[in-house]
Amino acid sequence: MSKLGIFDLSVRYGKLTAVNNISFTVAEGERVFISGPNGAGKSSLLAAIAGEVRAAHGRIEMDGDILSGRVPEAIARRGLSMVPEGRRIFRALSVQENLMVGVGLRRDKTAVPDDLEAIYAAFPILGTRRHANAGALSGGQQQMLAIGRALMTNPKLMLVDEPSLGLAPRVVDEVYDRLCSLQAQRGLTLVIVEQSSARAGRVGGRMLLLRGGQIVADGDAASFAADDLLKEAYFGKAAP
């Protein structure tokens, strides 16, 4: 059974169709990049999976459980965690409070202190600044905090929306390094929206290319870079 299954999913905002009849499945432990130009429907797809927008049509399953139609907090409780676009950390709360927010929904409360230390081990800067206001962190640190916050709910499946947004390339490298090693440690399934397909190719994994709300290509991210498909997705087919 696949970890995540999307079947004939459509998302509409009024008359505008953002996601148009998409189907794909994600296997346990897989890393899937969703790439494509602006307005391709990447973030809408993620928002629909996390329950933030209601699907107009179709079905979303996780471990065979139907997620579509549930509210975000109920979906989070099932072990799906979202790192939202633009980080959206709780700025007036301390770093540690940010990490503890998601803990309320866990049943295994005794494991919380160990998990907290594990996050601090993975992101040492968060450990040293644990009592600082989260709003005082740099962009890269905030991104790490947002990832740490999502991990504290002990998810099986994590959605990451544009982790590279507004960060220096060197910082983006660091964020992806950490994400990949955390995935290896925990056997996480990752679905990442990444605008830069070149970046996705370097990090490695499977890539879905979206355009106009539909999947135009699905394959190994590294082999995409050379492929004409990419140019087509961004700029449209060349005139014959």
Binding site: P72, A76, S81, P84, I89, F90, A92, V101, G104
Partner: peptide, 23 residues
């Protein structure tokens, strides 16, 4: 309390709070 922290999280960002499983 956990409830107090959860409520302050919704004060800071409602979307991120619900994504963290907060009702």
């Amino acid at each position: 309390s956990a409830s107090g922290l959860a409520l302050r999280a919704t004060r800071e960002d409602e979307v991120a709070a619900s994504a963290s499983g907060i009702d």
